[in-house]
Simulated scan of single mutants.
Amino acid sequence: MAIEVVLLDNIEKLGKVGDTVKVANGYARNFLFPRDLAVHASQAVLKQIEARRAKVAEVHAAEVAVAQELAAKINETSITIPMQAGEDDKLFGSVTVTEIHDLLAKDGIEVDRRKIAVGEAIKTLGVHEVSVKVHAEVSATLKVWVVKA
């Protein structure tokens, strides 16, 4: 059985703040309501959400602007990682997300380690592009140079 709820936070693959969505009763009762991510849809709640929508949109625009600045900084950044490699340019091991995260932090760029997506493991020397999801709507590409140590 589905019920209508109003989202109080952005939830990936479900909706954004203020959206009215239908979800399973158990999902709402066991996940959304205890975490204060949603409330039952009613006329009173919908009026309150409409009143807050402008403020939420303003805050969201500010978050996106900050994320775009950080993405631009990441796009301009490249990091170099010295690794041990054999004669055929294959690494003894692979470059990890933690290494990339630590080098970004040394450059003064703070991102959540879980938002760095290497894709296929980096196991060769050369230039590799790594995706960094800065915000739900903003992502950046980081150049990682893997050189022989």
Results as ranks from 00 to 15, higher is better:
residue 1 M to R: 07
residue 1 M to C: 05
residue 2 A to R: 13
residue 5 V to N: 09
residue 5 V to R: 07
residue 7 L to C: 07
residue 7 L to T: 06
residue 10 N to C: 10
residue 11 I to W: 05
residue 12 E to V: 10
residue 13 K to M: 11
residue 14 L to T: 10
residue 14 L to P: 06
residue 14 L to W: 05
residue 15 G to M: 13
residue 17 V to C: 12
residue 18 G to R: 04
residue 19 D to E: 12
residue 20 T to M: 13
residue 22 K to N: 03
residue 26 G to V: 05
residue 31 F to G: 01
residue 32 L to Y: 03
residue 35 R to H: 04
residue 38 A to E: 07
residue 38 A to C: 06
residue 39 V to G: 09
residue 39 V to I: 15
residue 40 H to S: 13
residue 42 S to P: 02
residue 43 Q to W: 01
residue 43 Q to V: 05
residue 43 Q to P: 04
residue 44 A to R: 14
residue 44 A to I: 11
residue 47 K to L: 12
residue 48 Q to T: 11
residue 49 I to N: 07
residue 49 I to T: 11
residue 52 R to N: 09
residue 55 K to S: 15
residue 56 V to L: 09
residue 56 V to K: 04
residue 57 A to I: 02
residue 58 E to R: 12
residue 59 V to Y: 05
residue 59 V to A: 14
residue 61 A to T: 08
residue 66 V to I: 09
residue 67 A to F: 07
residue 72 A to M: 10
residue 72 A to W: 05
residue 74 I to W: 00
residue 74 I to Q: 04
residue 77 T to A: 01
residue 78 S to E: 12
residue 78 S to T: 04
residue 78 S to K: 08
residue 79 I to V: 06
residue 80 T to P: 02
residue 80 T to G: 04
residue 81 I to A: 05
residue 82 P to L: 10
residue 83 M to W: 02
residue 85 A to I: 00
residue 87 E to I: 04
residue 90 K to P: 03
residue 91 L to T: 03
residue 91 L to V: 02
residue 91 L to N: 03
residue 95 V to E: 00
residue 96 T to M: 01
residue 97 V to R: 02
residue 97 V to Q: 10
residue 99 E to S: 02
residue 100 I to R: 00
residue 101 H to K: 01
residue 101 H to N: 06
residue 102 D to N: 14
residue 104 L to P: 00
residue 104 L to F: 00
residue 104 L to A: 00
residue 105 A to H: 14
residue 105 A to S: 11
residue 106 K to N: 07
residue 106 K to R: 11
residue 106 K to W: 01
residue 108 G to Y: 05
residue 109 I to Y: 04
residue 110 E to K: 14
residue 110 E to S: 15
residue 112 D to G: 05
residue 113 R to C: 04
residue 113 R to Q: 13
residue 114 R to H: 04
residue 118 V to H: 03
residue 119 G to L: 10
residue 119 G to V: 09
residue 120 E to A: 15
residue 120 E to D: 15
residue 121 A to H: 02
residue 124 T to F: 08
residue 125 L to G: 10
residue 126 G to I: 14
residue 126 G to C: 08
residue 127 V to D: 12
residue 127 V to T: 10
residue 127 V to L: 07
residue 127 V to Q: 09
residue 128 H to G: 00
residue 131 S to R: 13
residue 132 V to L: 11
residue 133 K to T: 14
residue 133 K to R: 13
residue 135 H to G: 13
residue 138 V to P: 08
residue 138 V to M: 10
residue 140 A to P: 06
residue 141 T to L: 12
residue 145 W to H: 15
residue 147 V to I: 12
residue 149 A to V: 11
